[in-house]
C-alpha cells in the first residue's frame, strides 16, 4: 500500500510536469488503473498513433489475463461484486488474495472487497497527491521521467530472479532493441511485439520444457 502511494506520487508528478494536472491522474487511475500502462501512457498523451497506444496497452497489461483466469474459481461466489473485483485486479491485490489466507474471523467477501478498494484507493490518492505537489513545487523537473525507467528496471530484476527461464526476458530486450535500430523511433514498437509473440510461439516447446524442469 505504501508502495502504491509513493509510486502514485511519482506518476502524478510526471503527469503534472507533462501538462496534465491531478484530476487527469485521478481520471486515468479510474479508467486505466494499471501503474505500468499509466506510466507508459504519459509519453503517448501528447500525440502519436491511437492504434499503437492500444497495442502497447494490450501487451503491457497481458499479465492480467493470467491473474483473472486464476481468480475465476475464487470469485465465482461474489455475484455482481465480482465485476469490480476483476476490473480492479492488479498485481498487489492478486498477490494478497490468491494466497488463500484470510485473517481469522473476517468475512471473505468483505475482505476481498476491502483489499481491492484499499489498493486502488492508495494508488488514486498517491497520484492525486503527486499532481498536487507538482503544482505547488516549482522545481526543475528535467529528468524526472527516469523514474519510469528505474521502476521497470526494478521489476525486470525481480522477474529475472524469480524466473528459471530467462529466454522471455532476453527476448524482450533484444527484439525491441533490434527493432529500434532497424525501424526508427516512431515505428519500432509494433514490429517488436510481433517478433516477440512469433518467437514465443515458435519456441514454446523449449520454453515450456524449461519451465517444466523447475516444477519437477
Amino acid at each position: 500500500m505504501v508502495t502504491f502511494i509513493v509510486l502514485g506520487i511519482g506518476y502524478g508528478l510526471l503527469m503534472q510536469k507533462s501538462g496534465y494536472g491531478p484530476l487527469w491522474s485521478l481520471a486515468s487511475g479510474l479508467i486505466i488503473f494499471s501503474g505500468t500502462v499509466q506510466f507508459v501512457s504519459v509519453s503517448m498523451l501528447g500525440g502519436g498513433s491511437v492504434i499503437m497506444a492500444a497495442i502497447t496497452a494490450l501487451m503491457v497489461a497481458a499479465r492480467h489475463i493470467f491473474f483473472s483466469i486464476s481468480m475465476i474459481g475464487r470469485y465465482s461466489s461474489e455475484g455482481r461484486r465480482k465485476w469490480y473485483l476483476f476490473y480492479a485486479l492488479c498485481d498487489e491485490t492478486y498477490a494478497m488474495l490468491s494466497r488463500n489466507e484470510t485473517p481469522e474471523g473476517v468475512d471473505l467477501s468483505a475482505y476481498r472487497l476491502l483489499v481491492t478498494m484499499f489498493d486502488q484507493g492508495s494508488w488514486l490518492l498517491g497520484s492525486f497527491l503527486g499532481g498536487w505537489i507538482g503544482t505547488l513545487l516549482n522545481f526543475d523537473s528535467t529528468g524526472i521521467d527516469f523514474a519510469m525507467t528505474a521502476l521497470f528496471v526494478t521489476v525486470f530484476i525481480d522477474q529475472w530472479k524469480s524466473a528459471e527461464n530467462h529466454i522471455p526476458a532476453v527476448l524482450g530486450v533484444a527484439a525491441t532493441l533490434a527493432c529500434r535500430l532497424i525501424f526508427g523511433r516512431e515505428l519500432f514498437l509494433i514490429p517488436a511485439m510481433v517478433i516477440i509473440i512469433a518467437v514465443l510461439t515458435v519456441m514454446r516447446g523449449r520454453i515450456e520444457q524449461k519451465e517444466g524442469d523447475t516444477d519437477a
Binding site: G172, F188, I196
Partner: peptide, 27 residues
C-alpha cells in the same frame, strides 16, 4: 482455457518489461 493462452499469459509479462525499458530509453 487453451494451453496456448495460459502460456502467453505466463511468458509475455517477462518480455514486456524488457520492451518497456528499451521503449523508455528510445531517444
Amino acid at each position: 482455457v487453451p494451453d496456448y493462452i495460459m502460456y502467453l499469459g505466463r511468458v509475455v509479462p517477462y518480455t514486456a518489461m524488457g520492451l518497456l525499458i528499451v521503449y523508455c530509453l528510445r531517444d
